[in-house]
Amino acid sequence: MLIFAAAVFFLIITPGPGVLSTAGVGSAFGARPGTRYVLGLFIGTNMVALAVVSGLAAVILADPAIRTLLFVASTAYLLYLALRIATAGSRIAFVEAVRPPGVLDGVALQMINPKAYAVNTTLFSGFAFGGGSLLAETLLKFLVVNTIWIPIHFLWLWLGITLRRLDLSQRAHRAINIAMSLSMLVVVALALAYQFIAIRP
C-alpha cells in the first residue's frame, strides 16, 4: 500500500492541467473562487475514477474518434482557461475575465482531462494489494487517493493565493498570471507532441 500511496503522490503532484489551473485560479481570483474550483476538480476526478473502475471509460476510450474528440476538447478548454487566467486583472488585455472559474468549470476540466483518465487507470488497474476482496481494495484505493489528492490541490491553491497576496505591482501580478498560463500551454504542447508521436507509424 505504501508503494501505491507513493505512486498517487507523484502522479498527482506533478504539473498537469488540474494543479496548474488550481494555482492559476488562486493567483488570479483568490481563495473563495479557488476553493469552488478545487471542489469541482474533486467531483470531476472521482467521476472519472468511477468511470474507470466500472469499465465505462475503457469502452468509451476504445473508440479512436472519441479519444481524439476528448483530446481536442481538453486542449481547447485548457487554452480557454489559460486565456482567462492570463487576462485576469489586466485592463489592457483584449479579453477580460469577468467571472472566475467555479465548480462546473472544475468538473468539466476533469471530465475531458486526459491526465485524469490516465492516472486513474494506472492507479485502479494496477497496484493490487492482494489478500482481500476487489471491492474492499477499490474502496481503500479511493480513500488513499482522495486523502492525498485533497491536500496536494489545496497546496497548489495556497501557492497561487500566496502569490496574489504579495505586495506586488499590477505589472508583477499580470506577469505571474501570464507565467501560470504559459505553464498550462507547456502542458498542452507536451500533450500535442505526445499525440503526434503516438499516431506516427
Rank of each mutant, 00 (worst) to 15 (best):
M1R: 14
L2A: 12
F4Q: 07
A5S: 15
A7S: 14
F10N: 04
F10D: 08
F10L: 14
I12D: 06
I12C: 09
P15S: 13
G16R: 03
V19S: 11
V19L: 09
L20M: 14
S21W: 06
T22I: 04
T22K: 03
A23C: 08
V25D: 02
S27D: 05
A28T: 03
A28C: 08
G30V: 11
G34T: 06
T35M: 15
R36C: 10
L41N: 01
L41P: 00
I43K: 05
G44C: 03
N46R: 04
V48E: 02
A49F: 03
A49R: 00
A51Q: 02
V52I: 13
G55M: 05
A57Y: 01
V59A: 14
V59L: 13
I60A: 11
L61D: 01
D63G: 01
A65S: 10
R67V: 06
T68E: 11
T68Y: 07
L69S: 10
L70M: 11
T75C: 04
A76L: 12
A76M: 07
L78I: 10
L81F: 07
A82Q: 02
A82M: 04
I85G: 00
A88Q: 01
G89T: 04
I92Q: 08
A93N: 05
A93T: 03
F94K: 12
V95D: 01
V95I: 12
A97Q: 09
R99Q: 11
P100E: 02
D105A: 13
G106I: 02
V107E: 02
A108W: 04
L109Q: 05
L109D: 00
I112S: 01
P114Y: 06
A116F: 08
A116C: 11
Y117N: 04
A118R: 05
A118F: 12
N120E: 08
L123Q: 06
F127K: 09
F127Q: 09
A128D: 15
F129H: 12
F129W: 13
G131I: 10
G132E: 14
S133Q: 11
S133G: 15
L134H: 12
L135V: 15
L135H: 11
T138F: 06
L139E: 12
L140T: 14
F142A: 10
N146P: 05
T147N: 06
I148N: 08
I148M: 10
H153A: 07
F154M: 12
F154R: 10
F154D: 04
L155P: 00
W158Q: 07
G160R: 03
R164M: 09
R165I: 04
L166I: 05
L168K: 07
L168H: 10
R174T: 11
A175R: 14
A179C: 13
L182E: 03
L182Y: 05
S183R: 02
M184D: 01
V186T: 13
V187N: 03
V187S: 08
V187I: 15
V188P: 02
V188Y: 06
A189E: 07
A189C: 08
L192T: 10
I197T: 10
I197H: 12
